[in-house]
Design a protein around this nucleic acid. Structure first.
Length: 489
RNA sequence: GCCCCCAUCGUCUAGUGGACUAGGACAGCGGCCUUUCAAGCCGUCAACAUGGAUUCGAAUUCCAUUGGGGGCACCA
């Protein structure tokens, strides 16, 4: 009989969540959903110094945006709360005291200054850095004496002086460590807060976590955690260390190095489905060719066996491509709904708000294949919304078409188009193709001139559809203004 | 300095001793399509870090080397 899987994503609220953090969360989520287990969110706010206001909210917003809904944790509660470590302080204190009582840990009264000096000396002598265990063998009386002098203490774990241990990781396999390379680490800080080491062991046990999924950077502290499980007499969870996502410089992602926050991707107009799919493919693959998968497919096919061990770089070009694929696969209405807020925010201020949602739906098919992010739609399609365009005379001229020809073409077009009673796509095509013939120029030449007149751009969606969407009045008015500009030269 | 991990095209990856003259994708390049731009389609460039060992046979196993990364806090 297998125990139901319980995994937790345990971020510390010290900044904005980036791809590296969320990558772990995604795999926590996948493992939980794949197995029908429970996905827990736990906030590791045990560093009073580094704690940042709003970080938890930011975190939760990012998780929600990506659809990583948690079954237990802040906002939803659960039977093993509270899910903020800062609200579980008595638990850690009791656990630390128990280990002291059992002889597995001890109080350390060393000052920060002493520790720093020791560390510097060790580095200068190129020695192994780590606590020198000065307080390891303090007697109860000595401890009392220090305490009565008002000296603050921390609790350190008594790491065996010799021997070794092997940890088993579901991805990396067996890894061995010598105890002699592990120092007596701090479990409980002098401010009464636990360190990550203590807190995660206490909470993972209390919350019945079965699998610890975390970044590869934790491998080297896993022996400490295992040592604590042994000392407590707890059964440790299974470990799943994941290869990290690295930056272009191949170093661990961090906000200091300019890692982009996940919500920024949302604000840049990436679809959460695309980012999810993209992030899943970093460190995991289904086979040798499948890339675009729905969330359901991913959950269903997910397996630990297919996870890689190599750190991977975030390839923005590929994300762009994938986002384009997702945009193109979206139904028009859905895309239009998602486009609306971006257009609203990024279209020039002179465009009247609120935007006409029906009109947005109308032009959506025209830009769908041409944008890779939602945000860029505003810059790409502004001419659909602007009342007045500024024409650049140079744009009307190219190798095939000189200014005089362009001017003549525009004048004839204005005449023809004002006579049209139905300004639809097909009418426009018939009218303009025959006009080109009459003028004795290539259809493409005429179209390009009109394109520039109607949009002030030389790269736009197909001309007839564009003009039809713009409508007769606006097209004629723009052609007039184009004629004016060209006549000046 | 010490400990640990990793190593296939520029990037993400497939590959678990023979089907590999190493597959896919992004990017790049070339072409087709075409009223522009895209999209689409076709093609092309491009990798098993190095050296040993094991084996009839290694991208795949083992050992070194090199390179990269991570850890060594009263941070997580």
């Amino acid at each position: 009989m297998t125990v139901p899987v319980r995994v937790r994503f345990a971020p510390s609220p010290t900044g904005k969540v980036h791809a590296g953090n969320i990558h772990t969360a995604i795999f926590d989520y996948l493992w939980a959903r794949h197995t029908g287990g429970t996905f827990i969110l736990r906030i590791e706010d045990t560093d009073v110094e580094r704690k940042e206001a709003g970080a938890v909210e930011h975190m939760m917003e990012a998780l929600k945006w990506l659809g990583l809904d948690w079954d237990e944790g802040p906002g939803v509660g659960g039977p093993y709360g509270p899910y903020y470590q800062s609200q579980r302080l008595p638990l850690y204190k009791a656990a630390a005291e128990k280990l002291v009582a059992d002889g597995h840990a001890y109080y350390c009264f060393c000052s920060t200054e002493r520790l720093e000096a020791m560390h510097q000396q060790q580095e200068a002598n190129k020695q192994l850095t780590g606590y020198d265990r000065a307080c390891r063998n303090l007697t109860a009386e000595e401890c009392k004496a220090k305490e009565s002098q008002g000296i603050k203490s921390v609790v350190r774990f008594k790491v065996p002086l010799e021997g070794q241990m092997t940890i088993h990781d579901l991805i990396y396999g067996d890894i061995s460590f010598d105890y002699k390379n592990i120092d007596d680490f701090v479990m409980l800080k002098s401010d009464g807060y636990p360190t990550y080491h203590l807190a995660n062991v206490v909470d993972d046990t209390a919350m019945k976590i079965t699998h610890v999924i975390r970044g590869e950077e934790w491998i080297s502290s896993t022996p400490r955690h295992l040592l604590m499980y042994q000392a407590f007499g707890y059964t440790p969870p299974q470990y799943i260390h994941m290869a990290m996502i690295v930056g272009a410089d191949r170093a661990k992602l961090s906000k200091r190095r300019g890692a982009i926050s996940i919500l920024e991707y949302r604000d840049m107009g990436y679809l959460s489905e695309a980012l999810f799919n993209f992030l899943v493919l970093i460190g995991w693959s289904l086979d040798d060719k499948t890339e675009i998968m729905t969330r359901q497919q991913i959950i269903e096919k997910f397996s630990l066996e297919r996870m890689g061990r190599t750190a991977a770089a975030f390839n923005q070009d590929k994300l762009d491509w994938m986002n384009g694929v997702y945009i193109r696969n979206l139904p028009f209405d859905d895309l239009a709904d998602r486009l609306l807020p971006f257009l609203d925010r990024y279209l020039p201020p002179e465009v009247k708000r609120p935007l006409d949602a029906v009109y947005v739906k109308e032009i959506t098919p025209l830009i769908k294949e041409r944008i890779i992010t939602l945000k860029e739609a505003a810059a790409y399609a502004d001419f659909f919304f602007l009342d007045n365009l500024t024409h650049d005379a140079a744009k009307f001229v190219d190798k095939k078409t000189d200014a005089a020809t362009a001017l003549k073409a525009l004048k004839s077009a204005e005449e023809k188009l004002s006579a049209l009673d139905d300004f639809n796509r097909d009418q426009l095509e018939t009218t303009l193709r025959s006009l080109a013939e009459t003028l004795g120029i290539k259809a493409g030449q005429l179209f390009n001139v009109l394109r520039v007149a109607a949009t002030a751009r030389d790269a736009t969606p197909p001309l007839f559809e564009t003009m039809a969407a713009l409508g007769q009045d606006r097209c004629l008015q723009r052609i007039k203004s184009a004629i004016a500009v060209l006549s000046k030269n």
